[in-house]
Design a protein around this nucleic acid. Structure first.
Lengths: 239, 239
DNA sequence: CGATGAATTGACCGATGTCAAGTGGCGTGG
DNA sequence: CCACGCCACTTGACATCGGTCAATTCATCG
């Protein structure tokens, strides 16, 4: 257990390619916390004080608009972290993180993280890289929201989820987490109604198989095609 | 000139609160480049090799979608930088930067920047902070695109431009850069037609004054109100 | 077996993008 | 100095995607 934990640490992009010795120091500076399912791990609007890496369990990062509209920024699986915001002084979280299942996390204080960065500059560089990648994803999603129709956005969301949370089964790739139509809608930037329609149509075509709060991808290639092409005219008839 | 340059450096959030001595080293590691108006300073898709700070002149960062649709990510005024992407190895720029006017920039190579970060860890911490702030802005815009109607988005875009590029005149606050309806549309996530309609309506109401590729804000408070409230029912009649 | 919450489905509608036609101002070149 | 033409902008008509609401069905759990 202590072993797999160390592995997770070294895997996380913020702490990757650090010497064993350093990793131990980093590890020693953190405390472990347990969160029961559905807890809010951090709350939007609270002072941003900690950086955390999820060790086991899954969580989601979400944001609520002034009007109550909720969006999901990303799903967080074991090994992923959040809260680099805490290197800012006097800043608040702009999102909440909610445990989907029971979770275990390593927790560093913002100041601790800064001290680590100053002692081991590599960490700072790594952190910049992480943030750059994240910004690229954010811009990607902005562009998609602006230019792609709902069907494609949902397809892309599912593909992303497949990467992070997919699990092979003999029926296809199961998104291994409770995922209601509404969840998927909040993650795709649309409504649960539109998601329902899209998913239904796909399930008729055999692309996915749906259940209560569950999605299984049956035909990954087809889904990829949908994600790209403007619209899939799907009858293979005359050209 | 060498003085004001040093000031700009120290002002930039990536290099702020560094000792004089360090700033000189940082400065020495950069080269200066000139860009004529309308040049592409960096090109989307090219390998991300440099971090740059604009010393004088303005530029804009833009991204084109596969379908040719163009969006403006941000306007860059003197003192602002771009290209932290270059700390990634083997990564390409996901956007272009275009000089709006003739520009002068300080240019660091990606590897140079990494070396600086490893020597002066503060720089890494600062860079993380910059990226965190940027991510927050990106998420903000995503949320706005999803929840706010066009009029409000345009209003917010104008307010942001006012902060960065606004110049007091006796007519009001002039956005001090060539800014066509289309530019504003690409910055607000809409079309030049919608921008045209919105601007026209505002100019009738005396909120702004428009010209060819030019906008002057005449009533900042009013604009702020529009940016927030769902819609401004503007006849002050019966309750 | 009933209740609760998820999902489906249909009808409706509205904001906004698209397209086409027209206007006007500024600069260039005769 | 004037006239022409380009280009930014305006404006109207129209289409449509997708959001909203309401009614119903379904499935899972107690």
């Amino acid at each position: 257990m202590s072993d797999s934990l160390a592995d997770l640490l070294a895997d996380n992009r913020v702490f990757q390619s650090l010497p064993e010795q350093v990793l131990q120091n980093v590890r020693a500076a953190a405390i472990v916390r347990r969160y029961p399912a559905d807890t809010l791990i951090v709350r939007q609007g609270d002072p941003a004080e900690t950086f955390q890496i999820i060790i086991c369990g899954r969580a989601k990062m979400l944001q609520v608009a002034p009007d109550g509209q909720q969006i999901v920024l990303r799903y967080i699986e074991p090994g992923r972290g959040f809260g680099l915001t805490s290197v800012l002084e006097e800043s608040d979280y702009t999102w909440s993180v909610q445990a989907i299942e029971g979770c275990l996390a390593l927790v560093w204080h913002g100041e601790t993280l800064i001290q680590l960065m100053e002692r081991y500059p590599r960490i700072g560089v790594n952190a910049v890289r992480v943030m750059v990648l994240r910004t690229q994803e954010d811009q990607q999603r902005y562009l998609e929201l602006l230019t792609k129709p709902v069907e494609q956005r949902v397809a892309r969301s599912l593909l992303r989820l497949t990467m992070n949370l997919g699990r092979e089964t003999d029926d296809g790739i199961l998104i291994d987490v409770r995922l209601s139509r509404e969840d998927l809608a909040e993650y795709s930037g649309t409504t649960l109604y539109s998601v329902s329609r899209v998913l239904r149509q796909w399930s008729v075509r055999g692309v996915v198989q749906t259940g209560r709060e569950q999605v299984v991808i049956r035909d990954l290639d087809q889904l990829r095609k949908i994600a790209e092409s403007p619209d899939s005219i799907c009858d293979p008839g005359s050209p």
